[in-house]
């Protein structure tokens, strides 16, 4: 869609593209601002900024780029209120969706992954197994393990990240 815009400069493409992220941006703004109306206004501002900046910017990953604008906008608003929130200019959040350095279909990768699972710390191993192998929901894992929802999310996210690192390391050693 961005390529199409670059070709014919028709801003209609930007509109179609941005609409795909409305709900996501609303959620992110709500997470920071904790106010429904303020979140809605913030998304509107993000769109305005994006419409102006997109034609002049070479954006590779639109989701991360929009997220940075939304987060900075919300933090600016919060800073205006509290005067002490630090604002970063770059998103330090990791967008993992573009990261897949190995062939997940390779049997060797799967075998390494099976072994790497055992190298995780026990809470991470339990949560990853319950989530990915037994397909339990977050709530079901909370009930089964006694961990809080935040802990479960964190164990799954960190467990997954650690597993990827372990698999890459072991693949490189081969």
């Amino acid at each position: 869609m961005l390529e199409k815009y670059k070709l014919d400069q028709d801003s209609q493409w930007i509109g179609i593209l941005l609409q795909r992220y409305t709900l996501l941006l609303l959620g992110v703004c709500m997470k920071y601002l904790k106010n429904e109306e303020a979140a809605k206004d913030a998304v509107q501002q993000v769109f305005l900024k994006a419409i102006i900046a997109l034609p002049k910017t070479n954006v590779e990953f639109l989701k991360s780029w929009l997220y940075s604008i939304a987060r900075n906008h919300c933090l600016m608003q919060l800073r205006d209120k509290t005067k002490w929130v630090t604002i970063s200019t770059e998103a330090d959040i990791q967008d993992n969706s573009f990261f897949e350095p190995f062939d997940t279909n390779k049997e060797q990768t799967i075998l390494i992954l099976e072994k790497a699972l055992l190298d995780l710390n026990p809470p991470q191993e339990t949560c990853v197994k319950l989530f990915y192998l037994e397909k339990k929901s977050y709530q079901e894992i909370v009930a089964a393990t006694g961990f809080s929802l935040l802990q479960v999310k964190s164990y799954i996210q960190n467990g997954k990240r650690n597993l990827k690192t372990l698999v890459i390391q072991k693949l490189q050693q081969l």
Binding site: L26, V28, K34, K63
Partner: peptide, 29 residues
């Protein structure tokens, strides 16, 4: 689990008292 942005967004959307309102806002936006 794999995308922090999606995680933050869902957590934010769960703060809406009425999930229907989020849908209305999306249409308006």
């Amino acid at each position: 689990a794999e995308d922090d942005i999606v995680n933050e967004a869902i957590e934010g959307l769960q703060n809406f008292k009425d999930p229907q309102l989020a849908q209305t806002y999306v249409a308006q936006l």
